[in-house]
């Protein structure tokens, strides 16, 4: 479809903003982990270390160099796949992360595949039958899920499915999952929990986006042409709500980032988030930096996709 010049300018602008944000975010991460804690060499060696030992380590780690230079070389390292060495285990961070990352991505992918279609159907349905019993039930459920912490959703899921119904194991990822059934069971609890958290946001935002377009003069016009409720919502409101809905989907998926930290911890799931939480308790700074950057980049990616879809779906930018 032909696009106007404004359209390309807006796209370029969004990408530019994303790039600037990435730089600011990575600086914040670097600043927090390298400069806030004080002297890393001192931290590593403990209070009892001699001055010479600390100075030696500091030089060995390149901590004598100016902060901005260290920031740039760190950033360059990230870009070329060199994530540094773990302070605690002395293994390259990249090696520690690679397995864990695929585990986390799998969890996110399965959750997305299940929750997006479900949430869209429920959100659009609730908007279509606004004020009905169905709508109210969905609203109460979503508000409840949004109002409680992620770990409570997880706790309730365990209580219901593992303790009372005894369908699923409470702590998922124990031994190697052998059969398909076992794998399903292993994923079920984390996916159910994450799915609830992500869908609740998505349903709320989708419903709001569709209702906003239903209350426009052109939908009233469709009513006055004799259109059915279905046609008004699906034919007239929905095409105009696509931008906001895509935005809602991407924004809700960014809740995955927060949710996954809790869920991996509570279910002992060997993903990046669990790795990071463990790294925080051992103050393994290079590992924390890398994990934090992975999360920030994926979050930023989703937000940028949300913005771009909003631009893409704006009919005024078509020629």
């Amino acid at each position: 479809m032909p696009r106007s010049l404004t359209f390309y300018i807006l796209i370029a602008q969004r990408l530019g903003i994303a790039a600037v944000t990435l730089v600011i975010v990575s600086f914040a991460v670097f600043f927090a982990t390298e400069l806030l804690p004080g002297d890393v060499a001192q931290v590593l060696l403990g209070q009892a270390a001699t001055e010479e030992a600390v100075a030696g380590l500091r030089q060995a780690m390149g901590l004598d160099e100016p902060a901005i230079w260290r920031f740039l070389s760190w950033l360059g390292g990230l870009a070329t796949g060199d994530f540094g060495m773990s302070y605690v285990s002395n293994i390259p961070v990249a090696e520690l992360i690679s397995d864990r990352l695929s585990n986390s991505l799998r969890l996110a992918a399965v959750t997305t595949a299940i929750s997006v279609p479900l949430a869209l159907a429920l959100g659009i349905g609730a908007a279509m039958w606004q004020g009905s019993l169905f709508d109210r039930a969905v609203s109460i459920l979503t508000i409840s899920v949004i109002s409680v912490p992620e770990f409570m959703v997880a706790t309730l899921a365990v209580l219901i499915f593992a303790v009372w119904l005894n369908w699923l194991p409470a702590l998922s990822y124990g031994a190697e999952a052998g059969s398909f059934g076992a794998m399903l069971k292993a994923y079920a609890m984390p996916v159910i929990t994450l799915g609830f958290v992500v869908s609740a946001q998505m349903i709320r935002m989708t419903r709001a986006a569709v209702i906003e377009t239903i209350n426009t003069p052109y939908v009233e016009m469709a009513l006055l042409k004799g259109a059915s409720r279905r046609r008004m919502v699906l034919g007239h409101a929905l095409p105009n709500a696509l931008g906001p809905i895509a935005n809602a989907v991407a924004l809700s998926l960014s809740y995955l980032v927060g949710g996954v930290i809790i869920v991996e911890t509570i279910f002992n799931y060997p993903g990046v988030a669990k790795l990071m939480v463990d790294a925080v308790s051992t103050r393994d700074l290079p590992l924390i930096q890398s994990c934090a950057m992975i999360f920030c980049v994926s979050y930023l990616l989703l937000i940028t996709i949300a913005d771009l879809t909003a631009i893409l779906s704006n009919p005024r930018l078509r020629r």
Binding site: A28, S254, C296, Y299, L300
Partner: peptide, 8 residues
């Protein structure tokens, strides 16, 4: 700054 997930 809003581009950093809050829990992170």
């Amino acid at each position: 700054f809003n581009g950093i997930p809050s829990l992170l």
